[in-house]
């Protein structure tokens, strides 16, 4: 849908400030240069660009942010963070969106059913990492 009603009501303000609080970042510092999206190795798999997501957080658009897969595709490589001209820890914002979902809307997350064979093969570090990023563990 390419329409939106902009409103800065309690829901919107709360979402924005929650993301700011969890990430410790000032979302409004973003001036939409797009360098985060430009350098992201995974943007081809993202439904929304990173800067688009950040803009939506500025506007308090919780549903649109959470519906997108952007923050789940993010692999926390932090290229965006080290290159952001406005010193925003962009990866931390992605983390905050994941955390927000895990904390407040865990029911929206699909449970993984991993075959035992895979569990044996995959390095522990990946399993631990994956569970910590994508589940309530």
């Amino acid at each position: 849908m390419s329409y939106d009603y902009i409103e800065f009501g309690e829901t919107e303000k709360e979402f924005t400030s929650k993301i700011e609080e969890i990430s410790g970042q000032n979302i409004f510092s973003c001036y939409q240069c797009g360098k985060c999206s430009a350098g992201c190795a995974f943007s081809n798999l993202m439904e929304k660009t990173i800067n688009h997501t950040i803009q939506l957080v500025q506007l308090g658009k919780k549903e649109k942010v959470l519906q997108s897969n952007t923050h789940w595709v993010c692999a926390s490589c932090l290229t965006c963070t080290v290159r952001c001209p406005r010193e925003i820890d962009v990866a931390a914002v992605m983390e905050a969106i994941r955390e927000y979902t895990l904390r407040y809307e865990p029911e929206t997350i699909e449970r993984l059913d991993l075959p035992e064979e895979l569990l044996k093969k995959i390095p522990n570090i990946a399993l631990v990492g994956s569970f910590r990023k994508k589940s309530e563990l």
Binding site: S2, Y3, D4, Y5, I6, E7, Q32, N51, H52, L56
Partner: peptide, 12 residues
């Protein structure tokens, strides 16, 4: 319009 999110927008 928000050309960055490619949405028409309305607000009061």
């Amino acid at each position: 319009v928000n050309t960055l999110t490619a949405e028409t927008v309305e607000l009061h």
